[in-house]
């Protein structure tokens, strides 16, 4: 376990800096994954001065653990306010873990159209991949035991911070999309 958690606000700045040379403000569209990814996407959108409004996705209807765990409580409405066909999209999430959320997100995006390109931006990679998924932009890597989740939180003033949360029970390999680590950690 790391002695101190990374500073989420600083990681947002670092992530924006890493992306700047690779995005076209008139062409690049962000899609944040609920809930933490939406917060990060808002910050990146402002920092990068993007013109296309950011979208948001709740991948509950595409999760691969529905038959084990049922429908996610409080599923949110996905909103993609731009034409996906031919778009240059960067999916934004807070933490990359198993890769299952990202697979679900890509499947969902393709139901809106065929993007020209999809990238992935995350604040942190906590390792533990179960699928061949890699971030395009990621300013921080760390290693955590399976029993812990790295949860992004947002304070009343909009400031983001990380917190370590013990999982109710350790995940069995391949069991869950566990890298939606904000809020309830993507679990029921």
């Amino acid at each position: 376990m790391p002695k101190s958690l990374p500073d989420a606000e600083k990681l947002c700045t670092d992530l924006a800096d890493a992306m700047r040379a690779h995005v076209d403000p008139a062409k690049t569209a962000l899609v944040g994954i609920h809930t933490g990814g939406v917060w990060v996407a808002e910050k990146l959108h402002a920092a990068l001065g993007l013109k296309i409004p950011a979208g948001s996705m709740d991948v509950s209807f595409y999760r691969d653990d529905y038959h084990q765990r049922g429908l996610h409580n409080n599923a949110k409405t996905s909103q993609i306010p731009f034409e996906v066909e031919g778009a240059h999209i960067v999916i934004v999430d807070d933490v990359l873990f198993t890769g299952r959320t990202i697979r679900a997100a890509m499947n969902e995006l393709f139901d809106y159209g065929r993007p020209a390109r999809i990238g992935l931006a995350v604040l942190a990679d906590r390792s533990g991949r179960e699928l061949p998924v890699a971030a395009t932009f990621c300013p921080h890597s760390l290693s955590l035991p399976d029993t812990q989740m790295l949860a992004l939180e947002r304070a009343g003033d909009g400031k983001l911070s990380f917190r370590l949360v013990d999982r109710d029970k350790p995940a069995e390999p391949g069991e869950a999309i566990a890298d939606t680590e904000s809020g309830d950690g993507g679990r029921k």
């Binding site: 509950s60 595409y62 429908l71 599923a75 949110k76 409405t77 909103q79 969902e108 139901d111 809106y112």
Partner: peptide
């Protein structure tokens, strides 16, 4: 509450989710 996100599915290009 659960019905709200499903109503958006019917407005997509592909009106289907794999549940």
């Amino acid at each position: 509450d659960t019905a709200a996100p499903f109503s958006e599915v019917s407005e997509r290009e592909v009106k289907k989710v794999p549940l």
